[in-house]
Every structure is written in structure tokens, then in C-alpha cells.
Amino acid sequence: MAELVYAAGIPHAPTLVGLFSRAPAEVQKVVRDSCDALVQELDAARPDVLIVFANDHLTNSRISAYPDFLIGMAAEHSGPHEWFKPWIGCRDYSAKGDTAVAEALFRGMTKRGIRMNAERKNLNFDDNISVPTVLMDLDKRPVRVVPVLQNTTVPPYPDQRRCYAVGQALAELIRDDLPAGLRVGLIGSGGLSHEPGGSRYYFIDEEFDRWFLDLCCSGDHRRLLDELTIDRMEAAGSGGTSELLAWVVVMGAIGERPGRSFGYAIHKEFRCGIGAVSWSVNGHVAGRG
């Protein structure tokens, strides 16, 4: 019986790295405070492995064969992908992977009727994994990473209820399939509101973002599932805001529990609302509320 020891939802806007130095001081402070708090909690939780759910920005697969979930099974995860590097403006990294946990995830999800794809080679990482990795120095910490790249933008894609059910299956899998004593952390990477590629590229829906962060902190998952619909996310930024479905997977895994927000920042040039949440799960037995 493995143990859930860490859970967080974090944004991965590339501008958090590339345009960070040009942002106003108060915006930089929210980003710094959020990262510092998340890292402190991570270090205190001491996970052996972090399973990171993050949307794929059409970086690994063609639209004609697009997986809903793609597990990275490599022994190391290196990035960013060559084409995305100048855009993100981040350093190279190579984070330790965990092939055994990735295989258990693939096997266990298949057994539970959830279609996931898996790849043994290094995946192409854009901002999805790269930004959290460099902001939290995941590659320099004693933790292994299993990335799960998620379809949140190529229709049709799994909605909030399906993603929550995936999270519930993940909790069961952690409890029943992973080795006793293994300390597991979960990260949902994406959001907040933004519309990449749309006519509202600079639009940030502050009202939605603050509502979403409050909802995550409330622990009211019935309301989350009733109200965080694809239509609502599309209205808050088409094609981008739905990245928050990665957070929904995490919330499905940890069950209803209050979270902690580290503030909210809105900065037009970031082209994305910024905020993060962590949930206290230390000692929580996965899948038992």
C-alpha cells in the first residue's frame, strides 16, 4: 500500500520563465511565493515519485491519432523539446523517471478500464512539464517523475467527470498496485484561464480564475463537477483553460479536502491567469477519502 504525501495544482505558462523578469514586482511576488511554498511543502512531504498530469500541446502526436493520456515510461525525462526551448526560454533539464511506476500505472489503468497510451522513449516536453520542472527544480531534487500527458484540447476529450473518475482509479491504483511504503506525490499542471491561438489570446478571465481557485480550496467536489464544465472553461479561454482538467484528475485522486491557495496574479503579457493550490494529503491512504 503506497501512500499519497503531496498534491498540488500549478500553472505552466511559458511566460512565467521567459517573461518573468519583465513582469511587475507584485506579479513576480505571487509567482515566487507560490513556487517557494510549493517547494517547501514538497521537500517536507519527501515523495519518492511524482506523477505529473499535464496537457500535451500537440507536441507528441498527430491529430489523427491523439491519445487522451500518454504515460512517459523513460528512465529519464529530458527537455525542453528543441523547438519549444527558445519560446519558453528555459534551461535544459533531465529529471529522473520511474519506469516501474510508469508501467504499473499503464497496467493498472488498463485493468481498470481506462485507456492510456505509453511511450518508453523520451517524450517531447513543451511548457507542460518543463516549466514546473525548472520552477521547482524537480530535476535537482531527490524525486523521480512520471509524466502523464493529457488531451485537453483535441475534441472530443475527457470531460471533468471522466477526469475525476481517472483520478479515483489512480487513487485505487496507488493504494493497491504500488509497493508498500512508496511515497507518491501528484501534480496537475496547467491553466489558469487563457486562449492560446485564439482571437482572445490576451484575454484572462479573472472572475473565472478566482472562482476556480476558491472552488479548489473549498473541497466541494460535487460543485466542482457540476460547474467546471467544458463549456464554462471554453468561455473562460477556448482551448487553454481546459488544461485545468489535469487538476481535476488530482482532485479525483485525493478526494474532497480543503486546499491552500498562494495568491492570484493577472498580467496581460503572461497571456494566462496565474495561481496555484496545494492540498494537505500527508499520511492519506489513497482512495479512502
Binding site: 500541446h57 500537440l58 491529430i63 527558445p86 519560446w87 526560454g89 491561438g197 485564439g198 489570446y201
Partner: peptide, 29 residues
């Protein structure tokens, strides 16, 4: 056309570094 790939096509045409991306976004919008 998928809009996310639209944003990426704009960067392929107008620039893909931090500042090129701003130019690409503005041209796309």
C-alpha cells in the same frame, strides 16, 4: 484548423523566441 496549431504556425512564420512569440501572437490576433 486547430487553433492551438494556429498559434504554433504563427510562431513558425513570425518568430519562436520569447520576443518572436509576442510578434506572432499580435499578427495572429
Amino acid at each position: 484548423f486547430h487553433p492551438y496549431l494556429g498559434g504554433q504556425l504563427a510562431r513558425l512564420i513570425y518568430g519562436n523566441d520569447v520576443d518572436g512569440a509576442i510578434r506572432a501572437v499580435n499578427k495572429l490576433v
